[in-house]
Simulated scan of single mutants.
Amino acid sequence: MWNLKLRGERASILADALLAVPSSSYQQRSLKAALGLFLDLKTKKALHRAHTVSASALSRLLNVYEWDTAACWATLVQAQWEALLLAARRKHHPRLRLCVDLTSVPKTGRELPFVRVYNEVYGLHLVVLYAVYGDLKFPVGYRVYRGKGTPSPVRLALDLLSTVPPEVSRRFDVWVLADSGFESAAFLQGVRDLSFEFVVGVRSTRRTDHPGYVTVQDCQHGSWVNLANWPWETLTLARVDRGERTFFSVASQLLPGDCVAREGGRRWAIESFFKEAKHGFGLNRFALRTAQGLDRWVLLVFAAFTLAMLCRADTLSLEQAAEVAARVALPLLVVQRLTAPLWQEEEFLRQHGYSLTLSRCKT
């Protein structure tokens, strides 16, 4: 693990770069308050819970004001890839795992953008690309699945994978991990066209090219198979028993079955992210009524998670890391939050002969 102090400095630099994007000081102050809210994992994500600015100010920042969201995304993603490349410095054949998956955020309102029914869930459906290297884990992109007649989750996942910078592809041994929702021949071929390896889940009924009707369920753990509708590469099959169910996955390299199973199990990192993003960082609290508001809300979730991850040590929980990130990246906001109860009692203090001032010491 590379130096935590350096990671903290990079978190501070990233936050400063993000906060510098809006053109006016008013918008910058609102963005700082919003980022502070998303880094406070003890507080439910509602606009009225932000410190130093009103809910209406945050609503205008997210829905109305014309600040360059694309520049913020570019700044965030560049910082994530740079952190991964720095962590792999001087490593021999480092392996980067790119997990792709779709998560659904149930919603009830009909005026929210992109709300659809998919897999019997009415809500927002996001395809997310999640990069994992060592103890660094970042959500590096997302796409919204908009329903029938629009690009499929498989197409959106391949689009996300195509955004991986060339320097990352050259530096890392890149493996794509996905569940059986991405088992299609189009996805497997798309991953190989990008020169990435993969471990992808497959259904038990997935046919092989053996004569007769032979499915992966009929094959042994660790055996080499060719899929009926994608016979161009020989794959390794892994079987994993969990209770009464058996899960199957195939790998693009001819590895022992146990290695394929272990590699496929690393896909669960993205499931952990989904849980943390929804219940800690507020992804499931989205209630804005514009597409721009959704994009900016997801940006704040991803940015807050990234800052917390940059400041996380082995001994810290994600909640503690987020608090450290807030102190490192937004010190003035933290001071204002800590002193807010005292300012509310300013009149009481004055009546008893006390005055309250806040000044910054020279260091």
Rank of each mutant, 00 (worst) to 15 (best):
S162K: 12
V168G: 08
L227G: 10
T290W: 15
A70P: 02
V164S: 13
L227C: 10
G190E: 01
R337P: 00
M309L: 05
K45H: 11
E197T: 04
S204F: 05
L255S: 02
T306W: 04
A185L: 00
R29V: 00
K42G: 13
C219M: 11
S359F: 11
R350P: 00
P256Q: 06
R116G: 09
P153Y: 09
V324Y: 07
R89P: 00
E9M: 09
V128A: 02
S184N: 08
L237C: 11
N3Y: 04
R89A: 11
C361N: 07
D258M: 00
Y133H: 15
E167V: 03
L194K: 09
F305A: 04
H92C: 08
V260H: 00
R267C: 04
H93V: 05
F248S: 03
S204V: 12
V260R: 05
V334L: 06
R49T: 10
R239W: 07
L283W: 01
G212S: 13
V225P: 04
T108K: 09
T75M: 09
V154E: 04
E197M: 03
N63I: 10
V298H: 01
V335F: 09
K5P: 00
L177S: 07
V328A: 09
L126I: 15
H221V: 12
N229D: 15
F274R: 06
P22N: 06
V140C: 13
H92K: 14
R170W: 06
N284Y: 00
D209V: 05
G181Y: 08
A17Q: 14
L58C: 08
A87V: 03
R60S: 14
K278Q: 12
T163P: 04
V115L: 13
R327K: 13
Q351N: 11
F138Q: 10
H352D: 06
S25L: 12
L19C: 01
K362M: 08
R110S: 11
V240I: 10
L333P: 02
R262T: 09
S162P: 01
L96D: 10
A313D: 14
R203Q: 12
Y65I: 10
F274C: 05
S169C: 15
L288F: 13
Q344H: 15
V77K: 13
C361A: 12
S169Q: 11
L299T: 04
D68V: 09
R60A: 13
L333W: 04
N226K: 15
K137D: 10
S359A: 11
K362R: 12
R143A: 14
G147E: 10
A87D: 11
L300E: 10
D40F: 00
Q292N: 12
T290R: 09
T103I: 06
S359D: 06
P331F: 02
V191F: 06
L19Y: 07
K44W: 00
L58H: 03
K148Y: 13
